[in-house]
Amino acid sequence: MLEGLVFGWRTAVLLVAAVQLLAIAAALARSMVNRAANRTLAVLLVVLAAMITPWIIGFAGFYDRWPWLTFAPFQISLAVAPLFWLYAVALVTGAWPRRGALHLIPAAVQLIYLSGCFLLPLEAKWAWSDRSDLAYGVLTGSALIAGFAGYGRMSRDLISTYTAALADHVGDDHRYAPRWLRNAMIAAAILFPIWAGYSITGLFVPVSYHAYMGLYLTIAGVALFLAIEGWRHAALPFPRLADLATPAPAVSPGRDWQVQGQTWAEAIRMGGWAAEPGLTLAQTARLLGTNSSHLSRALNDGLGVNFSTFINRLRAEAVAAAMADQPGHTLLDLALAAGFSSKASFNRAFSERFGAAPSAWRARLTS
Rank of each mutant, 00 (worst) to 15 (best):
A177C: 06
R179P: 05
R99K: 11
F84I: 03
L111Y: 13
L120K: 10
S115R: 03
Y87C: 03
P106C: 10
L78Q: 14
L78V: 05
K125G: 02
Y87G: 02
L78K: 08
G147P: 06
S155G: 14
L122D: 10
R182P: 02
R65D: 00
F62E: 05
V109Y: 07
I105W: 07
V170P: 06
A90F: 00
A127W: 13
Y87A: 14
W180K: 09
I112R: 04
V138R: 01
L181F: 14
L86R: 02
T93P: 10
A90H: 01
V138K: 02
P67I: 11
G116A: 14
R65P: 01
L144Y: 11
S142D: 08
Y162T: 06
A88Y: 00
G94A: 02
Q110R: 05
A72D: 01
R131G: 02
A124V: 15
P97N: 05
A95Q: 13
S132T: 14
T140G: 00
H103P: 06
R65M: 07
A167T: 09
P97F: 00
Y63T: 00
F74G: 08
P97S: 04
Q75S: 15
T140K: 03
D172K: 07
L158H: 03
G94M: 04
L83P: 13
P178F: 05
T161A: 15
D130L: 14
R175M: 08
I112P: 00
G150N: 02
G141Y: 03
G171F: 01
L111A: 15
L122R: 09
A107V: 00
A177D: 09
R179S: 10
M154P: 04
A135Y: 15
I159C: 08
T161N: 14
F148K: 09
V89A: 01
V89Y: 03
W128G: 06
S160Q: 14
L166H: 06
A108N: 00
R156N: 09
F84L: 07
L144H: 12
L119T: 13
A95M: 09
V138W: 02
F62K: 03
H174S: 09
T93K: 05
I76Y: 01
K125N: 08
G141I: 11
L91G: 03
V109C: 11
D133C: 04
V170F: 08
L181P: 03
S129R: 12
S142Y: 04
A101V: 11
N183P: 01
F71E: 09
R175I: 04
P97E: 01
